[in-house]
């Protein structure tokens, strides 16, 4: 099921969609599934399951810490599919966010097939752009999967055009120049990036939602972003709740409370 359905539902309710990220295997296999289900219960419209990778070049300290723990805990690619299966069973569209090498090594076609079989909606690929993504574009189309590429503040209009044409589901606008991690303020360039991206998408009547991520960590920021984007993406702030909790139950409660706060935020922004 494409994540577009979740965006359409949010749009019908005149609000932004809430997208929550957690890596598989963190804090444990079962703990990740439980936390993700709590995020769904409390109002996340889309879940991104991170595939833990040894060299997370685009991630700040919080996600680095979480994926390191997941890897030390022995998480495997097969566990990512099992996590997707458990979360997608809630009925909420579930994507995998992954650096490219694990997919490349698994085999792009085989990865697409197994992701589709697990009920996954598609992939977010932070270090793969459409020009190197020929195999993935073909495999995603063959298995009816979403292709979520990123646009950045530094992207030219020509690149935004090509990236949005290659994307399906939504396009991920990176709100700032930097790595993942909650920030105290939303970058002032973010609304302009969303506006540029929308304008380029709309030129020939295409319809692709624009989700904004990086740096969003609380309800007020979610409301601010919901004022100009179709989706609000939150990752590190959820992980922080799990890292700071004394035990899993407290961590999951923290995740649930944050999701509720963010869900309220995305309904206030307009």
């Amino acid at each position: 099921m494409t994540v577009k359905t979740a965006y359409d539902k949010a749009r019908a309710e005149n609000r932004a969609a809430l997208v929550g990220y957690l890596p598989a295997g963190f804090p444990t296999f079962d703990g990740a599934v439980e936390a993700a289900k709590a995020m769904v219960d409390a109002g996340c419209d889309v879940i991104e399951i991170g595939l833990p990778y040894t060299d997370p070049m685009m991630d700040g300290p919080t996600i680095q810490d979480a994926v390191h723990r997941a890897l030390v805990g022995g998480v495997r690619v097969a566990d990512v599919f099992r996590t997707v299966e458990a979360v997608a069973a809630t009925g909420v569209p579930t994507l995998v966010m992954t650096y490219w090498n694990p997919v490349d090594h698994y085999g792009v076609e085989r990865f697409a097939r197994d992701l589709a079989a697990a009920g996954g909606s598609g992939l977010i690929t932070p270090d793969l752009t459409p020009e190197e993504g020929g195999d993935w574009l073909a495999a995603a189309d063959a298995h009816d999967l979403d292709k979520v590429f990123l646009v950045a503040l530094s992207s030219t209009d020509e690149r935004i055009e090509a990236i949005t044409r290659a994307s399906r589901g939504f396009v991920y606008a990176a709100s700032l120049m930097g790595v993942t991690g909650a920030r105290t303020a939303i970058d002032t360039g973010a609304p302009r990036l969303v506006e540029r991206t929308r304008e380029i998408i709309g030129r020939d009547g295409r319809d692709l939602p624009v989700g904004l991520g990086l740096g969003v960590g609380n309800g007020a920021q979610a409301a601010e972003v919901a004022g100009f984007a179709d989706g609000v993406i939150v990752g590190s702030a959820f992980i922080r709740r799990l890292l700071d909790a004394l035990d899993l139950a407290a961590g999951v409660a923290g995740v649930r409370a944050l999701a509720a706060e963010l869900a309220e935020g995305v309904r206030k922004g307009r």
């Binding site: 070049m57 685009m58 490219w100 932070p126 270090d127 793969l128 752009t129 020009e131 190197e132 590429f149 990123l150 646009v151 950045a152 503040l153 530094s154 992207s155 030219t156 690149r159 990236i163 990176a174 120049m177």
Partner: peptide, 12 residues
């Protein structure tokens, strides 16, 4: 070879 890099670096 090629260029497997984040979009943010493509312009640079």
């Amino acid at each position: 070879g090629g260029r497997f890099a984040p979009e943010a670096l493509m312009a640079a």
